[in-house]
Each structure stands twice: as structure tokens, then as C-alpha cells.
Design a protein around this nucleic acid. Structure first.
Lengths: 129, 129, 129, 129
DNA sequence: GTGGTCTAGACCACC
DNA sequence: GTGGTCTAGACCACG
């Protein structure tokens, strides 16, 4: 269900957080869906259960999932907050990139061309999100 | 000459590296210019000399500056390599951002609009770089 | 695992860098092998952990190893880049030596003789590198 | 008379030492020749007189030149010791290079070919040495 | 446990 | 004065 890059420098727990959020926004993880248990996911990914627990804790704190002690972890009812937060973060990143490009000698038209080329060709899977 | 955010989570030495590169690309730090000495900059920024030395070492390994022991640190003769590397990194970041936006439900026209708005209004200072 | 000459004028961290590279090229340190931890190696060699960290950092920037914070330092997947860089450096050094010899009165045949004699008699250990 | 690479990492005084030795072995600086005075050479090369003095001191200690206080610095009567020392150092360097090449996967025949190619094409200027 | 960052203070060679 | 190296010891995030 999840794919982990064990050689990446981004923390393992962060990779899980990112993937849950991405899958939720893509529609592959619908609202109210139950997530795998900490121990089973740890087993599946060959990770320390603490790492999974940390990821789930982070997701809960962000409101992406909620935890029912004794029953498991479930995705929230809706992802509008998540989507909005992510788009805001995105805008900030693009703003930074644009400024950095300008500093490195990029012209506005080159920037526009770069942005056009970067849009992914194949549409992202999406259903019911 | 440099401004440090002591509360940021990005390492202090990294902030210095970033700023030197930015100032070099902007043209505010011309090629062959001498940088402040390790000790004087440490004093000015209230940092430990080791932190400055680490930043300068990093810049040297990237080819942005060169160090002459006993004489000082100097900006390289040209920044074309730096500029090119930065633009490549930039493209990769924009590509990632576009993909993430698509996943979060952004349409291509919204993406284009976002990119247009993000271009900095005031041109970046630039001379002789 | 490593041997340090504490009286040498070559920096301690550099000696470690050299040895890791040599062992990697010899095949004694296979790709993806985990290196001793910073602290344990520091203990073993009676050095400060910072010195080991500096050596590992240098190796990482050269692409010989990669570091996974919280997990350890690991040798890269392949050493072709390292091997190539080393052979290029080697050629340059031999070129310099030949020129210096010529200046000191060496004839070409004496040079060839010298080079023949300098080839190590016992082959270098090598397996799977 | 001398050429200094101000951007080289080899110490300035060392560059002077090397050049005097090289010019002596080439025959461009004959035995008993007088060297420029510390101050005039410092002026000519835009260096600190201390740097020249250090170079001359090193040369004197090695027996390449001798100093007559109040009269100047003069090249020694013969350079056989210098030539021998340099050839010994050279052999050691070639031995190291060969070993390093072997470790990096070079075969003996490749080594021989490398050495052949590295011999300088144009003969070194030489007269009366 | 791991590596990453930072401070404090020392000594060296070079200029 | 300059940069380079090293030690000692601290704190942090990650697993």
C-alpha cells in the first residue's frame, strides 16, 4: 500500500505522512477508511513500530486522521482543510522558486515556459475525492 | 552584510551558504571579491567561528568560493556552474510542486495562474554578474 | 579496521577519508556496507567524534558514502565515479613527476625503468568490487 | 624571473623554493649565481618580504643556496645533493602512485602505457648544469 | 542507539 | 592578521 524509500534522507515517518496525505487527496484513501494497524504496517514495511506510531500521531495532530483507541486509525470525514493547507504551502513554495529563479537570471517568459513544461502529462488518478 | 534568523530550523551555516550564493547570483558579490574573515563574520553575527568555517568550507566544495590559507576566502572567478546547478534544482522543485498540485486537485489553468502570480514584481538587483 | 598515524602531518580526518576510499576500491568495503558509527569509531581510534564526522561528511560529499541520519553511514552503491576520479588524479600526478624528473636530468629510458620498478610486486586484494 | 600563482593553495614561500630548485636543476640558475635581494624580489612579486625571507631560509637550510650577510644570497657550488634528493623523492612519489593505481584497478600494462604517455614531449631547457 | 548542529577554546602554518 | 585542524562537551531529531 505504501512505498518507502529507505535510502532517502527524508525521515521515514515523514514519508508515511506524505503518502497518506497524497493518497487521501488523490481519492485512493476515501474518508472514514481505516488505516492498517501500527504493528501490521510496521511489519509490512520492515519499520520500527515507533516510526509508524509517530507518523500516525503527526497525521492525527494535523486532522488528517482520527484515532479510536482500541479500534484503530481512520481517515477524517473530509479533506477540505488538508487540501487548502497543501495548496497554500504549494503557493509559498512556487513563490520562493520564482524568486530564486529571478535571482539566478531567469526571465519572466522563461519562468512561464518552465512552469508549462512541468505540468504532469498523465492525469493523476482521482475518484470520489 | 548577512542576516541570520537564529530561530529558524535551517542550520545557521546553511543560511550563510544560501545568502552568499544568492548575493553572488544577484551580482552584489562580484567574482574575486574577498569575503569577511571567519573570525570577523563570527563576531559580527554572534556565531562561533567554527560555524562560519563550516559554511565557507561548504561553499568552497561547491566551487562558489576558494580559500587561500593565511590570506582569506574569495569568490570564484565565475558563477556559471552555480547558476546552472541552481536552475536545474529549480526545475526539479517546480516539477514536484506541479505534481503535488495536480494531486491536490489543481487544474492546469489554475496552475498557470498560480505561476504567473508568483513572479516577483520588483526586479532583482543585478549588475555585472 | 582503520589505522591512524597520529604523528603524520596529513590531517587525521583525511587519513580516514583516504583509507575508506582505498578499502572501497580494493573491495574490502563492499557497496552498501555500513560503516562503524561516528561514536564507536571515535572511541576505537581515540579521536574526537567531530573528527570522524568531518571525515564521513567529506566522503559523503564525494559520493563515496551516504548518510542516513539516525541510522548510520553506508558505502555507495557503486564506486565507478570514485575509481575514475582517482585514475584522473593519478595521471596528473604521474605527468608532474615525469616533468620534474626530466628537469632533474632523468632520461626517458631511466624514467621508464623507474616506472617499471615501482609497480607493486604483490597483487592488491580484490574481490567483487 | 619567477612566476607566482597567487591563487594556488601551495604556500607562496614554497612556490619560490620550488622554482629556485627547478631553475637550478635546469641550468637556468648556474652555481654561485647571486639571487635577487629579499626586498627587490618582494617588490617584484608583490609579496611580503617575510615570505621571501622564509623561502631563502628554507633554501639555505636545504643547502641549495648560501647567505653572505650584508652581501646577498648565492646558489651553492654544486647541485648533486639537491638532484639526488629530488630523484629520491620522485621515486617515492611514483611508487605511491603505482600502488594507488593498482588499488584502483589499473593493470601493469596500463600503468606502463600511462607512464610512457606522461613523458614530456618537448625537452627541458638545459645548459651547463 | 544513530547522525547533525553548535559552542568554546586550543594550536598550527602562512602572510 | 588569516584559514585549518582538533578536542571537549552539549543539545536536537530520528529510529
Amino acid at each position: 500500500m505504501f512505498t518507502i524509500d529507505y535510502k532517502s534522507r527524508t525521515p521515514l515517518y515523514q514519508q508515511i505522512v506524505d503518502q497518506v496525505e497524497r493518497l487521501a487527496l488523490c481519492g485512493l484513501l476515501p474518508p472514514e477508511e481505516q488505516l492498517p494497524s501500527v504493528r501490521s504496517l510496521a511489519m509490512e514495511l520492515s519499520l520500527n513500530p515507533n516510526t509508524i506510531a509517530k507518523a500516525y500521531g503527526e497525521l492525527e495532530q494535523r486532522g488528517v486522521i482520527y484515532s479510536l483507541p482500541g479500534r484503530g486509525n481512520f481517515l477524517s470525514a473530509d479533506f477540505t482543510g488538508l487540501r487548502q493547507a497543501r495548496l497554500e504551502r504549494l503557493a509559498e513554495r512556487v513563490r520562493l522558486a520564482a524568486r530564486e529563479g529571478a535571482e539566478a537570471g531567469l526571465t519572466e517568459s522563461q519562468w512561464q515556459e518552465l512552469c508549462s513544461q512541468c505540468w504532469p502529462n498523465q492525469p493523476i488518478h482521482k475518484e470520489g475525492a
